[in-house]
Design a protein around this nucleic acid. Structure first.
Length: 638
RNA sequence: GGAGUCUUAGCUCAAUUGGUUAGAGCGCCGCCCUGUCACGGCGGAGGUUGCGGGUUCGAGCCCCGUAGACUCCGCCA
C-alpha cells in the first residue's frame, strides 16, 4: 500500500529549500534536523510509519507526497468523498478520500471509525478557495490519500474525546483515552516544558541534579509515612520520603554545594484538589548561600519558567512581606494580594466600649478587627448572613460572626445598638463604611481573629468575584516565619517549618531565654495569587544548635541519637552553612494551565480515596507475599 | 473523623404540585448523500432513575439507610 513519494527523493530534498516539508518537520519536536536528513536520504518510507506530524503541513508544502499516521479524530462521510481529520500528538490534518481517484482506498475509508489508528500516504494540496479552515493550523491544506493502512481498529470510546468531560470518575478509569484529549496533552506538554526550563536554568547556575533514595527512613514528625516492609530485614521498614530534606542537607555536608532534584514526594494524608499521595517538588539546596540569594535564584527560575512555558514576563524581584504583617493585614500566611478587603484593627476605637462581648474580649487581652465587604449588601441577604455565621461557627470554630449591613442609610445589625455614637462615627471613618457595604467583625485572641477574618476575606472575594477574569500574576515572598508554635495537643513546641530551620541571628537571645513564641526563623514562602508555590529556609549547620532545637521540640538525647544521629554526626564533620527551598511542581503547572486540580496535570493521578481507578491500585495481596515480608494483616475479609 | 453538593440512556442534561408508555442533544447502528470541517437527510437500538427499605391508590421526585464521586474542615513538620 505504501508507495515511494517525492519527498524522500534525496535530490529534491536537497533542492526544495523552504518548501520542503522536511524543513518544516525539522522544526517539529518529533524530528531533529539531523534525523530528517538521514531519514530522507537513506531510508525508504517502507521503514517508517510516517514522514511528518499532523501539525506540520502548510501551503508551501503543496505538491509533496507525505505519509501520516495517527488516530481518526472525526470522519465526514459524504457517500462519495470522505473527509477524515487525522490526529496525532501535534495536531490535526484533514485527509480526503476521493473515489474518482482512488476508488479502492475510498471504499476502505468508509469503514473507518473514531479512534481507529491508521496510516495514510497522499499528496498535499491547497484547499479549494473558500473551504479553508482557519481554526486549524493545517487548515489551508489537505492530503489527498492514495493509500490507507488500518494499523488498529478501535472500540467506541466510553466518552467523547473532543469536548469537555465532567465525569472525572470515568476519565480516570480510561485515563489513556482521556490523555488523548487536546487539553490533557497540552497540560502534559506544558509540564514537560516547566521541568525542562527548570533543568536548563539550574544547570546554567551550577546546580547538579542528584537523585536521593526513594526507600528511606520514616520521619518522626510531619505527615504520615508510606511504609515499605523490608524482606531482608524482617520486622523493619523503609518509608517513602515525604521530601528529600535530610539527604539534600547531607549532600551539602558532602561538599556538592549546589543540588537540585525534580523529586517525587510521598505523604499518606487525606487528598484534596491540590493534594495527591505522591507529588513532585522542584527541590533545591545550596551551600554558602544566603536567604536573599536563594530568593533571587528562585525569582530567576520562575521568570524563566513563565517566559518559556507561558510566554509571560513576570517582574522581579517579588515584593516581601513578613509573616506577622501578612497575618495582621490578610489573616493568611499566603495572602492573595490581587484584591484588598484588608483586615483593619478597631481595638483602639472600642477601648472603652460598653458592649459586653467586645468588653470581655478586650479585658481578656483580645483584639477587635473588621473587614469591609464593599458593595456586598446586595449580594448578602439576612438569611445568607445567617448562613455565613453558621459556617464560621461550624467550620472555623468561631463563636460567631458579627456584621453590619449598610443599606439605604440604615445600619442593619444585631450589635450596632450597643455602640455609642462616637464609636459608630470612628468605625465608619476608619472602615470607609458606605452605603451598600457589609462589615464583618472578629473579636477574639489575635490568632483566632486573623484566621476567621482571613477566611471571611477569601469568601467575600469569591462572592464579589474580585479575581474573576484576572490575568494578574501576584508573586510575593512571605518571610520571617515564626520558628516554633505551641501545640496544645502534644503539650509542647512544634516546628512551624521543620526542625532543621535556622533561627534568625537577632532572635537567638529569645531562644536562649526560652521565649520560643517570639523566635523567628530564616524561612520564606513564595506565594502566587494566594497559593503557596513553595517554601524553604536557611538550615542549622552546627551540631550543638541542632541538638538544642531538637531538645526544645521535645526530642531527648537518646531519641536524637536514634533518629537523627547520622545528621548530628555529619554536622560535626564540618558542615557548611546551607539552605534551600522546594517548589510544588504540580501546583505550579496547575496554575500555568489554569486548571483547578493537580489531577489535571498529572498523567495518572489517584482519586479522593487514593485509588487509581484505572489499575484499581491499591490491591490486596496474597498471603504468601505477606508471609515473605513477615507481615500479618488485622483486616478481616468481608 | 466531620460538613456540604451530586448520582436519570455510552456522554451531557431535562422531566411542572407525587400522576399516562421517563424525554432531548451528542454518540452508536442501518440506509441515502461527492467539498465537509458541530456535514446533511431518513430510520433504529439503547433505561432495574446508584443500591436497599419505607410512606402512598400511585415515587425519578417525599422519608430512612447505604454505596460511590467531588469540594471543604480536621490532617498535610
Amino acid at each position: 500500500m505504501i508507495r515511494g513519494c517525492k519527498a524522500f527523493n534525496p535530490q529534491e530534498s536537497r533542492c526544495a529549500g523552504e518548501s520542503n516539508p522536511f524543513f518544516e518537520r525539522a522544526k517539529s519536536p518529533l524530528f531533529t534536523p539531523r534525523w530528517s536528513w538521514f531519514v530522507s536520504c537513506v531510508l525508504s518510507n517502507a521503514l517508517m510509519y510516517r514522514s511528518t506530524s499532523c501539525n506540520s503541513l502548510r501551503k508551501e508544502h503543496t505538491g509533496h507526497s507525505v505519509t501520516l499516521a495517527g488516530w481518526v479524530n472525526s470522519r465526514r462521510d459524504h457517500g462519495g468523498v470522505i473527509f477524515i481529520d487525522l490526529r496525532d500528538r501535534e495536531g490535526l490534518t484533514q485527509v480526503v478520500f476521493r473515489p474518482e481517484e482512488h476508488p479502492q482506498v475510498a471504499e476502505a475509508a468508509h469503514g473507518l471509525r473514531g479512534e481507529d489508528v491508521i496510516q495514510i500516504t497522499g499528496t498535499v494540496v491547497g484547499r479549494l478557495t473558500g473551504s479553508e479552515n482557519l481554526k486549524l493550523a493545517t487548515g489551508e491544506i489537505e492530503v489527498i490519500a492514495s493509500a490507507l493502512t488500518v494499523l488498529n481498529k478501535a472500540d467506541v470510546p466510553p466518552f467523547p474525546l473532543d469536548s469537555k468531560v465532567a465525569n472525572e470518575d470515568l476519565r480516570l478509569s480510561y485515563r489513556y483515552l482521556d490523555l488523548r484529549r487536546a487539553e490533557m496533552t497540552q497540560n502534559l506538554k506544558l509540564r514537560h516544558r516547566v521541568a525542562k526550563s527548570t533543568r536548563d536554568f539550574l544547570d546554567e547556575h551550577g546546580f547538579l541534579e542528584i537523585e536521593t533514595p526513594i526507600l528511606s527512613n520514616p520521619t518522626p514528625e510531619g505527615a504520615r509515612d508510606f511504609l515499605v516492609p523490608s524482606r531482608l530485614n524482617p520486622g523493619s521498614f523503609y518509608a517513602l520520603p515525604q521530601a528529600p530534606q535530610q539527604y539534600k542537607q547531607l549532600l551539602q555536608v558532602g561538599g556538592l554545594e549546589k543540588y537540585f532534584q525534580i523529586a517525587r514526594c510521598f505523604r499518606d494524608e487525606d487528598l484534596r484538589a491540590d493534594r495527591q499521595p505522591e507529588f513532585t517538588q522542584i527541590d533545591v539546596e545550596a551551600s554558602f548561600i544566603t536567604e536573599v540569594e536563594i530568593q533571587s535564584l528562585i525569582e530567576g527560575l520562575l521568570k524563566r519558567i513563565f517566559r518559556e512555558a507561558k510566554g509571560v514576563e513576570i517582574p522581579t524581584p517579588f515584593p516581601r512581606m513578613s509573616y506577622a504583617e501578612a497575618m495582621d493585614r490578610f489573616g493568611s500566611d499566603k495572602p492573595d494580594l490581587r484584591f484588598g478587603v484588608e483586615i483593619t484593627s478597631l481595638t483602639d476605637i472600642f477601648q472603652d466600649t460598653q458592649f459586653k462581648v467586645f468588653r470581655s474580649v478586650l479585658d481578656g487581652g483580645g483584639v477587635i478587627k473588621a473587614i469591609n465587604a464593599k458593595g456586598a449588601a446586595g449580594a448578602l441577604s439576612k438569611e445568607q448572613l445567617k448562613k455565613w455565621e453558621e459556617w464560621v461557627k461550624t467550620e472555623l470554630g468561631a463563636k460567631g460572626l458579627a456584621y453590619i449591613r449598610l443599606k439605604d442609610g440604615e445600619w442593619e445589625s444585631p450589635i450596632v445598638k450597643f455602640f455609642s455614637e462616637a464609636e459608630k462615627a470612628a468605625l465608619a471613618a476608619r472602615m470607609q463604611f458606605e452605603d451598600g457595604d457589609v462589615l464583618f467583625f472578629g473579636a477574639d485572641k489575635h490568632q483566632a481573629v486573623s484566621d476567621v477574618l482571613g477566611r471571611v476575606r477569601l469568601r467575600v472575594a469569591d462572592l464579589l468575584k474580585l479575581t474573576e477574569g484576572s490575568t494578574e500574576l501576584n508573586f510575593l515572598w512571605v518571610v520571617d516565619f515564626p520558628l516554633l508554635q505551641f501545640s496544645p495537643e502534644d503539650n509542647g513546641w512544634a516546628a512551624v517549618h521543620h526542625p532543621f530551620t535556622r533561627p534568625k541571628a537577632e532572635d537567638m537571645g529569645l531562644l536562649e531565654a526560652g521565649d520560643y513564641a517570639r523566635v523567628r526563623a530564616v524561612a520564606y514562602d513564595v506565594v502566587l495569587n494566594g497559593v503557596e508555590l513553595g517554601g524553604g529556609s536557611i538550615r542549622i549547620h552546627e551540631r550543638e544548635l541542632q541538638s538544642k532545637l531538637f531538645g526544645v521540640l521535645g526530642v531527648n538525647d537518646e531519641e536524637q541519637q536514634h533518629k537523627f544521629g547520622h545528621l548530628l554526626k555529619a554536622f560535626s564533620f564540618g558542615a557548611p552553612p546551607h539552605g534551600g527551598i522546594a517548589l510544588g511542581l504540580d501546583r505550579l503547572v496547575m496554575l500555568l494551565c489554569g486548571a483547578d486540580s493537580i489531577r489535571e496535570v498529572i498523567a495518572f493521578p489517584k482519586n479522593n480515596r487514593g485509588v487509581d481507578l484505572m489499575t484499581q491500585s491499591p490491591v490486596s495481596v496474597e498471603l504468601r507475599q505477606l508471609r515473605e515480608l513477615s507481615i500479618s494483616s488485622t483486616v478481616k475479609k468481608a
